[in-house]
């Protein structure tokens, strides 16, 4: 099932596995959230464009597919702030 543009779930409950919709690479299983398994990086907001604030109070956090390197998700957060984790209820 589709979870977002680039992430989908296969199976349900404990058997749920998350994979990349772009390359079908499995990202995680039900024990850990996929965001905690894939590479992520925090950038200054300016990465999103020259008209972005130069403030260092906030960052643009990006999550990538470890295989095809597509941008799975991004967040505007304070540096080091916990990930914004969307969770399916089984």
């Amino acid at each position: 099932m589709r979870l977002s543009e680039y992430v989908e779930g296969i199976g349900t409950g404990k058997k749920l596995r998350i994979r990349c919709r772009s390359c079908r690479k499995f990202l995680s299983d039900s024990r850990r959230h996929w965001k905690e398994k894939v590479p992520h990086k925090e950038y200054p907001l300016k990465r999103a464009g020259s008209l972005m604030s130069a403030s260092t109070k906030y960052v643009l956090r990006e999550f990538y597919c470890p295989s095809c390197r597509i941008l799975l998700d991004s967040e505007v957060v304070e540096p080091g702030e916990p990930f914004l984790l969307d969770e399916l209820k089984s």
């Binding site: 977002s4 543009e5 680039y6 907001l45 990465r47 999103a48 464009g49 008209l51 972005m52 604030s53 403030s55 109070k57 906030y58 643009l60 990006e62 999550f63 597509i70 941008l71 799975l72 998700d73 991004s74 967040e75 505007v76």
Partner: peptide
């Protein structure tokens, strides 16, 4: 001004400050 209020979706970047 410092943050970016117009957040994106599915990896999309926020709109300008």
């Amino acid at each position: 001004v410092e943050a970016a209020a117009s957040t994106g979706l599915s990896g999309g970047y926020p709109g300008s400050s």
